[in-house]
């Protein structure tokens, strides 16, 4: 099976052409040229960076590669946790998806201090079906609490129209946020005041209603002075 691998990768003067051949054949060796694991020399933060560029489903698949990769998703500086994108055909496996999201955001065996998380996108359309909605609401609260603890700076939250898809108080623990996008689908409740998020410089709101009694924007602009 490996008979095509005639030229050891560490031969001096190996040309790019020969190397390209090696790639095309899928026989890229290791960084040490001896066919070892090329990721061996990478710190966990670099594995996390690689995983952060994958769709969540692929990021989770990556954690099954080896023991080393198991923790990579928890080291990712950015996560795009999109339920509908993970199950394009039909939404299912909600509990397994939620467990993977928890492992990525708030791993149980996290060696302190946790890796910083800069960007988080939570697109939870489809997660709040009748049987799972209450559980999904609990998960959402704990995910945002975990993101807050990791100092999340940019957050996009997309919630479906559901009685139980409520913005949890833990959103307001994310005081490092500089950018917040809330996509709510005809949100039934008045939007809570965002004044605890004092560092916000960008805010995008879609499909929500305001409580007529509050001066939502007045409070917002007097408290979030970075907003442009």
């Amino acid at each position: 099976m490996r008979t095509k691998h005639l030229i050891p990768n560490n031969v001096a003067g190996l040309t790019y052409a020969a190397r390209d051949f090696a790639i095309r054949e899928g026989y890229g060796g290791g960084g040490d040229g001896g066919g070892g694991d090329p990721f061996e020399g990478f710190p966990d933060a670099v594995l996390g960076l690689i995983v952060s560029k994958l769709p969540f489903r692929s990021a989770v698949a990556a954690s099954a590669i080896s023991r080393r990769w198991r923790g990579a998703v928890a080291a990712a500086p950015a996560l795009d946790i999109d339920f509908a994108a993970a199950f394009p055909a039909a939404p299912r496996r909600r509990a397994a998806f939620a467990a993977a999201a928890t492992a990525a955001l708030a791993p149980r065996s996290a060696t302190p201090p946790p890796h910083p998380l800069y960007r988080l996108r939570l697109a939870l359309e489809g997660l709040f079906d009748q049987a799972f909605a209450a559980s999904a609401a609990d998960h959402l609260a704990s995910w945002l609490a975990a993101a807050a603890a990791r100092g999340v700076e940019r957050l996009e939250l997309r919630l479906p129209r559901s009685r139980l898809a409520v913005i949890p108080p833990s959103l307001f623990a994310c005081t490092s946020l500089t950018s917040l996008t809330l996509h709510l689908d005809h949100y039934a409740l008045p939007l809570p005041s965002l004044t605890p998020l004092a560092r916000l410089s960008r805010l995008h709101l879609a499909s929500f209603s305001l409580n007529g009694d509050d001066d939502f924007f007045g409070d917002l602009f007097s408290n979030c002075q970075e907003l442009r």
């Binding site: 899928g26 890229g28 694991d37 994958l54 692929s58 080896s66």
Partner: peptide
């Protein structure tokens, strides 16, 4: 790595 199974990723990178 995108869209590959763990088996396929191990094979590509020799992990």
């Amino acid at each position: 790595m995108k869209g590959k199974s763990p088996d396929q990723i191990r094979e590509v990178f020799n992990i």
